[in-house]
Design a binder for these strands. Structure first.
Lengths: 202, 202
DNA sequence: GTTGTTAGGATACGACTGTATCCATTCCGG
DNA sequence: CCGGAATGGATACAGTCGTATCCTAACAAC
């Protein structure tokens, strides 16, 4: 199969192989040769479709962001019939927590990338996009809910959202390290949503 | 200086050099030779006082835990005159958040270790000690406060504590990545403490 | 059919890794 | 004062890393 290769598809396969390694053995275990082996191709192929290791890493982070985005939208669509402000928050925060094997693997990889980004400006630039978008989106929703009179007027929407996102991230960490179950984490999230929106509808 | 060397002191210096590298350039930048250079000694010295790189890494994690423990006790002592249950929580959670340059560096290193521990069982074993101790300690305090009638009797102490610790960890992440200032993070913590204990005394 | 571009196999380079070894100091105890 | 242990300098080893190069197939267009 020498001519006519779908480059985007090839790159997608390699990126997925990279994320598989990063989520199970950590980002420090990711090497060009390991990716090649994981994807079942030669080292040359990895070099051929990505100019750099850096480009490969950035591709992995972009893909992780896209997956998270997909999960949020999927959850929002699943609860579309009851799209209250609380429902939106439950969907987004519930999509951040690892809730099945794949999302747990992705959370592992995300955590690895987050840590790497603390000392790698190039990754940081790619990585802040999604968290900022989430915060702005939720803040806008909460502000709207407040203006509609659905929540206490003397709460600061951005502060509330920042707290909830930080809580979800911290809970994700504790779920990944097996300190807490997914159910326990969800319970804590729900508890805080109750405090903000009032008790959930049946 | 051939005979009579204080081994513990030597190991402490090397461990500090290790943490300086881990907190500024990440754990993946930590190598035997880099530690030697940072500490101003030869590679042989690093080998001589630590049998392994693994032993060195574990020493770094232990030291980080000790520092955190010291910070908590220091804050508790500083607020010893007003050691209300809320004061204890404010001290512990305030010690988790990065509040000065050194604690920020330590938080960076802690984050790096946390991530490494997700794929390295040996580090995980060392690393869970402190978080578990903190959770148990705070849960005991909150249970006592509840029995004394200081907080709402239908709250679950362990759930509350788990939420607060997760919140503090998540806020730490956002402070490290410059998404939020220390002041903003502290404000969010205080806000949640108000919800739990009632408004703070003047 | 020839030509030229695309796709990848094979191999090599220099840098860096953790670890091991050899050897020269320096000092304590006898 | 002298033998032996403690300390550490210098160097080497076998791997692995990212990257570069060389060369050969395979197909499209002419």
């Amino acid at each position: 199969m020498p001519r006519q290769v779908d480059h985007d598809e090839r790159r997608r396969q390699l990126t997925e192989a990279l994320l598989r390694i990063a989520s199970t053995r950590g980002l420090q275990a990711v090497s060009m040769r390991e990716i090649a082996a994981e994807a079942g191709v030669s080292l040359r192929v990895v070099q051929y479709y990505f100019t750099n290791k850096q480009a490969l890493l950035e591709s992995g982070l972009t893909e992780l962001g896209a997956r998270m985005d997909r999960r949020v939208k999927q959850r929002a669509a699943a609860a579309a019939d009851e799209l209250t402000p609380r429902g939106v928050f439950a969907a987004v925060l519930g999509a951040i927590l690892p809730f099945d094997e794949q999302s747990e693997l992705d959370s592992m990889a995300w955590t690895a990338y987050y840590t790497a980004a603390l000392t790698d400006p190039a990754l940081a630039a790619v990585g802040v996009t999604l968290p900022n978008a989430l915060e702005n989106f939720l803040t806008a929703r909460l502000t709207a809910a407040q203006q509609a009179g659905d929540i206490d007027p003397d709460r600061d929407p951005r502060t509330e959202v920042a707290g909830l996102l930080a809580l979800a991230n911290g809970l994700t960490s504790s779920v990944l390290s097996r300190q807490r179950s997914h159910a326990a984490a969800t319970e804590i999230i729900d508890y805080h949503l109750d405090r903000l929106f009032g008790p959930a509808a049946a």
